[in-house]
Amino acid sequence: MSNLVELVINGLSLGSIYALIALGFVVIFKATEVVNFAHGSMLMLGAYVIAATHGRIGFPAAVAAGLATAATVGLLIDRLLVSRLRRRSHTALAIVTIGVDIVLGAELARRVGTEVLNMGDPWLDHTWRVAGFTFPVSRLAAIAVALVLIVAFAALVRYTDWGVAMRAAAEDAEAASLMGIRLGRVSMVAWVVAGVLAAVAGLFLATFPSPGLSATASTTALRAFPAVVVGGMDSLSGAVVGGLVIGLAETLAAGYSEQLLFLGRGLGDVAPYAVMIAVLLWRPTGLFGTRELSRV
């Protein structure tokens, strides 16, 4: 039983990290209709900058640098590529981000190589013992930070001018633009926000209990895709729910791998994808996604 409680908390913590990745992904999709396959590389870049600089400038400054770098890359992708490709098909836009991912991913994988980089975070491998349960402090920090960011993000979408503009653009880009909403600015902010969220997620994916930042981090980040799809690609609350579901599924499958051995080793790695297929068979646009209807 104590095992289950610990697993659930760890699952929720992993899930909140996935939720951050998924939120960034969804906000880009809503604002610009781009499915950003370079999201994993943006996350990895942010984490890499933190890992590479914390020794010289200290952890807080390194985090700031990591967030800034990831946000800048998001901004560059938006300005240099996406803004030039408006009105092109979803597939063309998605493929451009795949191209970016190939280049960025290759360079990051080369730099990290076979090493496992230390993130220099203050939580180290400390654990918290509460009522007989043991929790890694870094995981609790992840939950706290994710919670703050999600609330801040929700406020951003709900109350700021940009949030209103973004929602209008997602509803009907043409009408929004006729009402004087600057779609370029909406898209720019979306990419910057997504970059920041991805970098934060990258930091927590590489802290304890994971050994550090290795070349496989971008594969881990890919598991946010099931989160996005489970929640529905155009739903912000869906991204959070999807992230938690996927995080729980992964942690539980890994935690009970002994009992589930008949399904093979490394079950935690595929559980997110299995959940995604199951949900898609049931609801083709995810749990909270808008069903696409076409009026003739």
Binding site: V35, M233, A274
Partner: peptide, 14 residues
């Protein structure tokens, strides 16, 4: 065949 183009792209990752 149930999924619209871009959903399929992500689902096929699985």
């Amino acid at each position: 065949s149930r999924l619209r183009g871009i959903y399929l792209g992500v689902a096929s990752l699985s």
